[in-house]
Amino acid sequence: MDTNIWRPILYLIGFMAFAGINAAYLGWCERKGAGRIQRRTGPMEVGFQGLLQPLADGLKLMSKQLLVPDGVDSILFRVAPILAMIPALTSMAVIPFAGNVQARAVELSVLLIFALASIGMMAVLLGGWASGNKYSLISAARSVSQNLAYEIPMLVTVITIVMLTGSMNLEEIAAAQQGGFWNWNIFPVASHSLAQAIIMPVSFIIFFICSVAETNRAPFDMAEAESELIAGHMTEYGSMGFGLFMMGEYLNMVVGACLITILFLGGWDGPLGLSGGIWWFLVKIYLLLFTVIWVRWTYPRTQIYKLLNLSWKILIPFSLVNLLLTAAFIKVF
């Protein structure tokens, strides 16, 4: 791996472009998908099937005045939306999209992503606190307790993966899963044992739920909760402040999906032993994203204490049991 400085910078520019387009068209997909689930058409007027709608929305957001209301902490208020974007964008840098397609190879990339994800939570906290709005304040408090509760099962699950592959490097984790879905960590019947293959789907589900909760998506969108807290931490934001929060949210979703793909779904590996490549990676992450959207438009929202109960009473015990069993299986087989 060369240490050329230009490589990460060019990648970063690519990620930024990707972030904008991704947020715009994932938003479009979400609206269309929600429309189809609800037996309506979704956006139709701007362009064919409303394809230009995201562009129109983006232009609208950019052309609006950046309003900083009276009584807000003006520095933190401006910092928060940026803070929502930066960690997500930075974590993209260590994600291996394919064999050698990675901005910067980092040995402890799994740890780095989790560290950055915790900063992402600060955006909601600061945005909520700085807004000086009581709903935003409640939202900030909620998001902290939620993130705290869900990082534990997530990390415990990651430890099982690390135990299986013996590495904290995302590229190595993905590389260890090459050669058909029977090698993937979600169902590692070939690379590990059948016993392991039975408990890993549970780990996958736990990790999936946690990543939905970490990215503040319905049914765990406690911080946003528009029917209770109006829009939570985003209540006072308009124009690109709101736009950055939204882009950050979608980018966080993408990072979450990338992580799941690498940790559980074999990264860029083709299923059934087909030759791998970046396209498989993209197919996998977008399938995961569609699932997240599908989940959002199916369930009602949970309630903050039920959400914490789910984490502390169900996800953490299950993930701990998984961890112990994995350790035992590694020792035995």
Binding site: R36, I37, R39, W294, Y299
Partner: peptide, 18 residues
């Protein structure tokens, strides 16, 4: 069950009029 119901609705024709 919830997911299966919304998935089925996804593929049904739309009922709204433009």
């Amino acid at each position: 069950v919830g997911l299966s119901i919304t998935a089925r609705e996804f593929f049904k024709p739309v009922v709204t009029e433009q």
